Simulated assay, not measured.
Amino acid sequence: MQREMAQKTALIVYAHQSPVSFNAAARDVAVEALTKQGYKVLVSDLYAMSFKSSATADDIKGDLKNPEHFVYNEEMMAAWQDGRLSDDVSEEQHKLEQAELVIFQFPLYWFSVPAIMKGWIDRVLTQGFAFTLQKMYDNGIFKDKKAILSFTTGATESMFLADAVHGDINVLLWPLQNGVLRFCGFQVLAPQIFWCPAHSPASVRSQMLEAWRERLHGVFAEKPLSFAPTEYFDLSFQGGFRLRPEVREKCVSLTHGITTAHHLGKPLPPDNQTKAKES
């Protein structure tokens, strides 16, 4: 008899204070849609958990390696190796280990995530567990996992264009999607952006949620966003971790840069952080 496929697991890292917020509704849609597909869905409701946002020595059980000069990242890596991380960090790491899909659900604060979610990133994605200098980007530890930023904005979509007051949303997303998610190896799927729901009619908010529900039904078949392959770079101190000369030569004829940040002084590739490339 053919063995049944193992149940997939999704983790929703959720940051909003109100249970009647649009973000809560988006979270609930994701839980329902994924559960109907047979997923085991884990939710980390950071405010309800009173998750600590500050990265301190309290995150480590037992003695520090170097109490004279506390270096958080080094101490956390040693504590992770020895099984001495605080219970709340260990529990979140255990959830993340199980998950094939991670959704970060939040309101955009100051062009980034709320402090409590930044604390989750700082404290949970520790060196050794989430990355090493040998295992990052294409070779990252979480290369078999997918991740999505799902968030609300207080401003309209037209305010996040290349010629608009807030600037290009693709530039805004680069630090989170490349500097956090892809750095740890995640296959980063296009963000789910809910534009200005607080100032949208109820019918529009309903349409936003329905589009999210519909998207989640095919989410695992989605193509991830495009990033510069790690093999493009000379990953040595001698080479300065820069583009290999032969790659640079090939890029001379490109109309656009490689990515939003690897722009090479050329126009940015359109929608590099918001849409997957067409096949």
Rank of each mutant, 00 (worst) to 15 (best):
A10D: 11
A15T: 12
P19Y: 02
A24I: 01
A25I: 00
R27N: 04
R27L: 12
V31K: 10
L42Q: 12
L46S: 14
Y47R: 10
M49R: 15
S50Y: 13
S54M: 14
D58Y: 11
G62T: 11
E68M: 06
V71H: 09
V71L: 13
E75I: 06
A78S: 13
W80M: 02
S86R: 12
D87A: 15
D87P: 05
E91Q: 14
E91T: 08
H94W: 04
A99C: 02
W110H: 08
V113C: 04
G119Q: 13
W120G: 14
W120Y: 15
R123H: 13
V124R: 04
L125P: 04
Q127S: 06
Q127I: 04
F129I: 05
A130L: 05
G140R: 03
I141D: 01
S150I: 04
T152Y: 01
S158Q: 08
L161F: 00
V165L: 07
G167Y: 01
G167A: 02
V171N: 07
Q177K: 03
C184D: 04
F186T: 03
Q187S: 09
Q187M: 06
V188R: 07
L189C: 11
P191W: 04
W195K: 01
P197L: 12
P201V: 02
V204C: 00
Q207C: 05
Q207R: 15
L209C: 07
L216K: 08
V219F: 08
L225E: 06
L225K: 10
A228K: 02
A228E: 12
T230W: 02
Y232K: 09
F233N: 05
D234G: 07
L235V: 08
F237M: 15
F237Q: 11
Q238G: 10
G240T: 09
G240R: 10
L243K: 01
P245R: 02
C251H: 03
V252I: 11
L254R: 12
H256G: 03
H262C: 04
H262M: 14
H262G: 02
L268E: 01
P269E: 06
K275H: 13
A276H: 09
S279Q: 10
S279V: 13
